[in-house]
Write a protein that binds this DNA or RNA. Structure first.
Length: 237
DNA sequence: ACTATTTGACCTAC
DNA sequence: GTAGGTCAAATAGT
């Protein structure tokens, strides 16, 4: 049983791409035994330039493929200065077949391929609901509102602004629901346990709270614009 | 031409 | 031996 961690649930507005505030590149996808949908693997785009070893796995849940389990591994070692370089980095990087060559950064193990060793430390886990256009399960009748549940906290400083896309089998989702952009908005709260028994104060922010955080227009509010300390202060009283 | 994504193969952990 | 994680070539998209 993992130690209990703080969990955050914040309602989000979804448009076209999932943006959790970090910059990811997909490096693989795999069918997992006992699950209906394949798992997608992402790593920080700063792996090459900054040796950032953060990765995450994204997988639709069996119960509802519109809910994505997002599991984060490792910590971001890239800093905020990298944010503005993201687009340039992406556009200037070598082709996919060559950018995955041997790591050059200090901190990456050189003696054997680090990529083939399993990581053990789960930093935090997220669930993202991505619904179809017809889904009335959306919140408050707003087809663009979704729930995001965060377990644990970021320990790194980067909250990059790049979008990253999450895809799942075409057979299980229409083209309009293959990716989503997360934008925070407001809600009221409760407490619940997740499937791993991690409890927590599942808190929600009110619209006023969100506006107080500087988000302004909900539609245009981007994840990186949030001050998580301020969110914590609101959630925890 | 370049970038992004897919997918089979390979490697390691269990 | 099997399942999961990653690599990297192939393919698709822009």
């Amino acid at each position: 049983m993992p130690s209990r961690e703080t969990l955050r649930r914040i309602r989000v507005k979804v448009s076209s791409t999932v943006d959790d505030g970090f910059s990811w590149v997909k490096y693989g996808q795999k069918d997992i035994l006992g699950t209906m949908y394949p798992r997608s693997y992402f790593r920080c785009i700063h792996r090459q330039t900054k040796g950032c070893l953060a990765t995450k796995q994204v997988q639709p849940t069996d119960d509802d493929h519109q809910i994505l389990d997002v599991i984060y591994y490792g910590e971001h070692t890239c800093d905020q200065s990298a944010r503005s370089d993201d687009r340039q980095l992406k556009s200037s990087r070598p082709a996919a077949s060559s950018n995955l060559q041997e790591p050059q950064q200090p901190g990456l193990e050189q003696s054997r391929p680090a990529a083939k060793r399993r990581r053990k430390t789960v930093r935090w886990k997220t669930q993202v609901r991505v619904s179809s256009v017809q889904d009335i399960q959306r919140r408050d009748g707003d087809p663009l509102l979704f729930d995001v549940v965060y377990h644990g906290d970021h320990t790194c400083s980067e909250r990059a602004s790049l979008n990253e896309q999450v895809t799942w089998p075409r057979s299980s989702a229409s083209s309009t629901e293959q990716s989503s952009t997360i934008t925070y908005t407001a809600a009221a709260g409760s407490v619940e346990d997740d499937e791993e028994g991690v409890t927590s104060a599942t808190n929600f922010l009110s619209m006023d709270d969100m506006l107080d955080l500087g988000g302004g227009d909900v539609i245009d509010m981007a994840f990186p614009s949030f001050d998580f300390d301020a969110i914590d202060a609101l959630l925890l009283g």
